[in-house]
Design a binder for these strands. Structure first.
Lengths: 362, 362
DNA sequence: ATGAAAGCGCTAACAC
DNA sequence: GTGTTAGCGCTTTCAT
């Protein structure tokens, strides 16, 4: 606790015997009054303990809060643990920093529909990071009369977006595996809706997923493998609500229990893939000799272990989202930014073992 | 970009033919009007595209912004890269989350004295994380009539604080090394002031450091080693402005170049220590056989490599800071929280080699 | 259960 | 250069 609020701009003006305008100018437009008067104003302010114009009152008047709001799917604290979210955050912070804007993290509970916090945030615009298309918080953001930029998902008509081409990106992985000879695969994906389903995913659920990114990646895999002669209906897809390595482990276990014959596990995130690696090791499956595992994102940890994955420029996404939002007033600016992705050929993918090798060793 | 601002609470009231109070109540005190009227109000609001009460105007009236400001020493983006800062952030976010408060990161450039951003932040209080005692942004924060909590440094009379006992903590390390037999040591520390000094540190600079935490840790080492018969004036202390592993590497190099005879390098952070490990390896010095290296903080990466260090509960610090701030109105609450630290005996410390061993091998 | 009046603290035209 | 006049959009006693 520090103090209460005694002095205001008006009381300062009264004390000095000048108008409020003059005091205001002393703070906001130094050139609009004599240096001498300004000095007197500031000095008296200090004496009275006047801390300068109240930011909220100023914001109300100027209609500018000087801050960008950030809405995340997850609890605030989650973002500080997911490497991809973190890199995005860093990029966004960079953009805010250079524009002198604050970054206001909106506290949101994905379970409770706590819309009030969105309405309470005094910000000039919102960045929304990767939420489901039916997220009520997103709806609340869009109802506010401020510019908004969505990163990754969902796509909303008329709303600016930063993202990648998920279909094209996952297709790079799929083609790679197909050319290596993999036909019997399994997939590990992140949550597909706001409801928890830690299990296999029906075709219907795949198609109606509320997370556009996951839906598109699954569709990309389905398209590519179908074209290669694989019956997608036979491909097991395992979903996990929580995004963690532990989830990757248990999902891989579930998959391998159901079909020990898969030669490759495709994961829609590096985190899940890292978990799958752990599970493979537990089962004494050598990667990539016995099992190919791929990820998605290209986080640092993935590089370290040599994961085959698709790198996406997450930090750049953050920067781009910030720039897009902060330049929202400009006339003919871009309304959608799609960043490039790149296949990273790691050491976790190789041709499948032949049937003979499986029985008689390499 | 989304829309402009057409409807206000007043215009809605006019449209409905009711008073502004009624509309306000429809949003804030549902029990104060008939359900039927409330329904009508909300429906008309939707029709007119009224997004609900403006948060800034509401804040001005209620004198509550619903957000906590966070001031960091470094650029905003830095916080997302330093594991300790990150854990603190996570803890603080957790506290904010459960209190339904936003977390407003104040953009600040440590080089430029950009006080304006502190004054512009519409927040109900500030958390200040580890800044020098002469930081102008800190002064700006303290001038604002809102509660403030400082984490780690500096200590300010009358301002709440969360931290650890740095003297006691570093003493644990010192005593450990002394009991192992180390007498000829070197120290790597973080920046001691706002001016860059990537070199050795004079006794004077050690004592007058503007970062209380570093100053206290150095003092703790000086006290303990002096008591063990070491002449502190002979102990080389190397300072680095940037907190990175690269800094640790170059600092260790500088130290080992100046005195190849040191048997232990004490670092005031794990990050620096990890860098020192890299440099040791480059020189073919085995750790701990040829050289003991210790850190401070207990970050995940340190555990992984088995670094001897002092663990401090960084996440808890964040939580505690949040709780302290958000409970600032309470009557007889704690004004200072000191958390416990714990020596982590890793595999990077061992007795020094004797002179014979140095010449003839182990 | 609803309304009238009184600002919260400030800035921006516009006049002097 | 300095002051006057009008609100920004909302909540909150206090009446009715």
């Amino acid at each position: 606790m520090h103090a209460r609020r005694p002095a205001t701009l008006a009381s300062l003006a009264a004390e000095l015997g000048v108008s409020r305008t003059t005091v205001s100018n002393a703070y906001n437009r130094p050139d609009q009054l004599s240096p001498e008067l300004r000095r007197r104003v500031l000095e008296t302010a200090k004496r009275l303990g006047y801390p300068g114009p109240d930011p909220v009152a100023r914001s109300l008047r100027t209609r500018k809060a000087g801050a960008v709001g950030l809405l995340l799917t997850e609890n605030l604290s989650y973002a500080f643990r997911d490497p991809a979210a973190l890199a995005f955050l860093e990029g966004l912070a960079l953009a805010c920093e250079s524009a002198g804007q604050g970054l206001h993290l909106v506290p949101v509970n994905p379970q409770r529909e706590d819309i009030a916090n969105v309405h309470r945030a005094g910000v000039d615009g919102f960045v929304v990071y990767s939420v489901p298309d039916d997220d009520p918080h997103l709806a609340a953001v869009l109802s506010r009369p401020v510019p908004t930029v969505v990163c990754d998902q969902p796509r909303v008509e008329g709303v600016d977006r930063v993202g990648i081409d998920d279909h094209a990106a996952i297709t790079k992985i799929a083609k790679r595996l197909i050319s290596l000879g993999h036909r019997r695969i399994g997939v590990l994906c992140m949550r597909l809706g706001r409801d928890r389903n830690d299990s296999f995913v029906s075709l219907d659920r795949q198609r109606s997923a509320h997370f556009h990114v996951q839906r598109t990646r699954l569709a990309g895999l389905a398209d590519t493998f179908t074209a290669a002669g694989v019956n997608w209906a036979d491909v097991r897809v395992v979903e996990r609500f929580d995004h963690s390595q532990a989830s990757g482990e248990s999902a891989a276990a579930q998959l391998l229990d159901a079909d020990p014959g898969v030669t490759a596990i495709i994961c829609t995130s590096d985190i899940l893939a890292l978990g799958a690696m752990t599970e493979a090791k537990r089962r004494n499956l050598r990667v990539p000799q016995d099992l190919t595992i791929t990820g998605f994102d290209g986080i640092t940890e993935a590089r370290r272990v040599g994961l085959t994955t698709v790198r996406q420029p997450v930090l750049e996404k953050g920067k781009a989202a910030g720039k897009l939002l902060l330049g929202a007033a400009e006339a003919n600016r871009q309304r959608e930014i799609t960043l490039e992705t790149e296949l990273v050929d790691g050491t976790t993918s190789a041709p499948p073992r032949t049937a003979e090798e499986r029985w008689f060793g390499p």
